[in-house]
C-alpha cells in the first residue's frame, strides 16, 4: 500500500492506469491534430482569399517597355515622315499666340502662350442653376459652355441687352421697347464676345468682385477690373478660348 492508498502493485490497476494515460494521450493528440488542421485550413482560406481577386504590379520602366504597343519597324511610309506629318497636323490645330483657358469648376481664367501661363485670374463662371418660365414652359440651364471658342469681337464700355430670362427670373414684365432692354455699366469696362450676339456668352467685368471665385453668372465669365484690362490688352480678336 502506498501513502495515498493506491496499490501500484496490482496488475489490473496498473493496466487501468496505463489505459487511462493512453486514452488521454490520444485525446490530446486528436485535439492537437484538429487544432493544427483548423489553423492550416484557416491559413489556406486566407491565402485563397488574398491571392484571388486582383493582383497589382508596379508600372516601372521594364513593365512599360514590355507592354508598349508593337510598331512595325518598316512599312510603306518611313517613320520620320509619319512623325513630321503628325507634328504638322498638331501645329495646324494648336492655337497660335496667346489663348484663354477657363476652368469653370475652379473658377480660374488663364492667359497662356503655349505652355507658359501669362495670367492666372480668379473669375466667376456659370452657376448651373435651372429656370422655367411658368407662362411659356421655356427652360434655361445657366452653365458656362464647354469646348473651343474664339473671340468674335471686343467692346469697350459694353452694354448688355437683357434677355427674357432676366425678366422671368426677377418676376418683372418684359419691356415694351427693345431699347429698354439695353443696360449700361453691367459688364464693366470691356467685353470679349464669344458668339451669340449681344446676349450671348462673353468674358466681361463685374460689379460684384467679392463673388469672384464662385459660380454665380448665367454662363458668361466675369473677371475683376485689373485682370480684365490685361485680357483686353493681350487677347486679340480671333484668339482661341478653351472652356472646360
Amino acid at each position: 500500500m502506498s501513502d495515498n492508498g493506491t496499490d501500484h502493485s496490482s496488475p489490473l490497476l496498473r493496466g487501468i492506469e496505463s489505459a487511462k494515460r493512453e486514452h488521454a494521450r490520444r485525446v490530446r493528440r486528436t485535439i492537437l491534430v484538429l487544432l493544427i488542421g483548423t489553423v492550416l485550413l484557416c491559413a489556406a482560406v486566407v491565402l485563397f482569399l488574398f491571392s484571388t481577386g486582383y493582383g497589382y504590379a508596379d508600372l516601372n520602366a521594364a513593365y512599360i517597355s514590355r507592354h508598349s504597343m508593337e510598331v512595325p519597324q518598316t512599312g510603306p511610309v518611313p517613320p520620320q515622315k509619319i512623325l513630321d506629318l503628325a507634328e504638322k497636323k498638331l501645329d495646324q490645330v494648336r492655337p497660335k499666340g496667346i489663348f484663354v483657358v477657363v476652368d469653370h469648376v475652379r473658377n480660374h481664367l488663364y492667359l497662356r502662350d503655349g505652355d507658359k501661363v501669362v495670367l492666372d485670374a480668379l473669375c466667376s463662371a456659370g452657376a448651373g442653376t435651372l429656370l422655367t418660365d411658368p407662362k411659356s414652359d421655356r427652360h434655361w440651364v445657366f452653365d458656362t459652355p464647354v469646348g473651343r471658342f474664339f473671340v468674335r469681337g471686343k467692346r469697350k464700355d459694353p452694354t448688355w441687352t437683357a434677355p427674357d430670362w432676366d425678366y422671368i427670373e426677377s418676376g418683372e414684365p418684359f419691356p415694351k421697347n427693345y431699347a429698354d432692354r439695353v443696360q449700361e455699366g453691367m459688364l464693366g469696362e470691356y467685353a470679349l464676345d464669344l458668339g451669340g450676339g449681344p446676349s450671348g456668352y462673353m468674358i466681361h467685368g463685374t460689379l460684384y468682385t467679392r463673388l469672384l471665385g464662385r459660380n454665380v453668372s448665367h454662363g458668361c465669365v466675369r473677371v475683376g477690373q485689373d485682370d480684365l484690362r490685361i485680357i483686353w490688352q493681350k487677347v486679340p480678336i480671333g484668339a482661341t478660348v478653351f472652356m472646360y
Binding site: 452657376a127 448651373g128 442653376t129 429656370l131 427670373e169 426677377s170 418676376g171 453691367m186 448665367h218
Partner: peptide, 14 residues
C-alpha cells in the same frame, strides 16, 4: 445638384 430658381424670387439678378 442644380438649384432651381423660383421666378420672381431674384430681385433683378444683375
Amino acid at each position: 445638384n442644380r438649384i432651381r430658381i423660383t421666378p420672381g424670387s431674384v430681385p433683378s439678378a444683375e
